[in-house]
Design a protein around this nucleic acid. Structure first.
Lengths: 235, 235
DNA sequence: GTCTATAGGGGGATAGAC
DNA sequence: GTCTATCCCCCTATAGAC
């Protein structure tokens, strides 16, 4: 199968006059996404970015800070948009419980609309985040921390919209929800039937029109109290 | 933060008299999961497995075959169980459309019950599959191929249970469904509220009791025909 | 400055000895 | 089954021709 050729499929900033800091971010993102984070040495980053080994420390302070920056650059705008949408929901109606779909949309839509960026960046986004699972807990925490703020507003809001769910139930459903969101971005490479989805209907708004009701339905459904499941099997 | 120490957290087969083939599989899986597949050379695998460079070719035939084997070892049993469950569904009732929950369970449950294996293997499973997105299309295909058989039975079955959904709709929902399934396995490391889920309620059956209704609800809900939601924003 | 040629290294696959 | 040695291919870098 030969060796991997992914590293330089179509570099963007390589030769431009972009400043070193931006180049370092671009290169680091790409290497992180394809090789893993801890597998990527500062040396490989700086040499690929045509920069000095010391430049990372100068521009970011540490490798950890660089890692954080790489993710902040992608997650930051998404979470800011989420906060804005959550603001809109909470300010709009004084006491009335906000619509479930609005809340879900606030979390999910900013990610989908990220598709605005070109396909290459889209792929990179998925790759980058896929790598997180292969990293140490410290690095994972470093990245998950960036969702704390949004989560601390989203969870209570969702709880208030679904007062009948106990907390455990709610949190599990949120995991499913996040999964469904990610699932919408999975390539499904080579599974023939799914090739049909590559064309039309894959623009952000179309996906959202399908994804949000799916999630809302899943969130809304009540879970059978608990013991045997063979019971409802015949129904 | 130091470099990655994950490689040998608690190796299992290292020193035992386990045969070379098994050792190669274990080592390859671990290296694939932590470094990526194409980033892992046969040389690094064989040396870590205390085996000869030629051993991979002797035991598996090629690197591709080794890759396939690594995944087959994990996916194989899952898909076999899925096929058995699909058999049971289709044989049981002659003409009547099978219950949606049964179909979903047939796909989802075998993955959840994989948790039977120890936590380390569970983590490895997620890591391993996370790496797939960072690989070339050839490798992705190599792995996705292993789902063809199940998919070709599952999709029509689901379609028959949801006759009102057009094919595109159905396929999107399947992506969401797969996502939700994966989502249930995500660590959410460091997001404080989710730490509560680590203890009770995280056994396979409990997760399934929540996950299956979530998915069934999402599959069942009808999607708004399409024009209303600001659809014609830019199109 | 651009292009072709060639050297070097890494990696996968294979033959033949043990 | 395992090993050593080797072949071949691909990629990168560099040098010399134009």
């Amino acid at each position: 199968m030969g060796t991997d050729m992914q590293i330089h499929e179509g570099a963007e900033t390589e030769r431009t006059g972009a400043d070193t800091k931006a180049r370092l971010l671009d290169v680091a993102e790409e290497l992180f996404a394809t090789q893993g984070i801890s597998n990527t040495s500062l040396r490989s980053i700086t040499s690929a970015a045509d920069a000095n080994l010391a430049s990372v420390n100068y521009h970011f302070g540490s490798k950890d800070a660089l890692i954080r920056e790489v993710f902040v650059r992608r997650i930051g705008p998404i979470n800011e948009e989420r906060m804005r949408m959550l603001d809109a929901i909470e300010s709009g109606r004084g006491d009335r419980a906000p619509g479930l779909a609005d809340i879900v949309e606030a979390i999910v839509a900013p990610v989908m609309r990220l598709k605005r960026v070109d396909a290459r960046q889209q792929r990179m986004f998925l790759r980058l985040f896929s790598q997180v699972h292969s990293e140490s807990e410290e690095i994972q925490r470093l990245i998950f921390t960036q969702f704390h703020e949004v989560a601390s507003r989203f969870i209570p809001l969702l709880q208030s919209a679904l007062p009948n769910l106990d907390r455990t139930e709610l949190l599990w459903k949120i995991k499913f929800m996040i999964g469904a969101m990610v699932g919408s971005m999975l390539p499904m490479t080579g599974l023939t039937p799914f090739r049909a989805l590559d064309g039309e209907g894959s623009d952000p708004e179309s996906v959202l029109r399908r994804l949000i009701p799916f999630i809302v339905a899943g969130l809304s459904v009540s879970v059978p109290p608990g013991e045997d499941r063979a019971a409802e099997r015949g129904a």
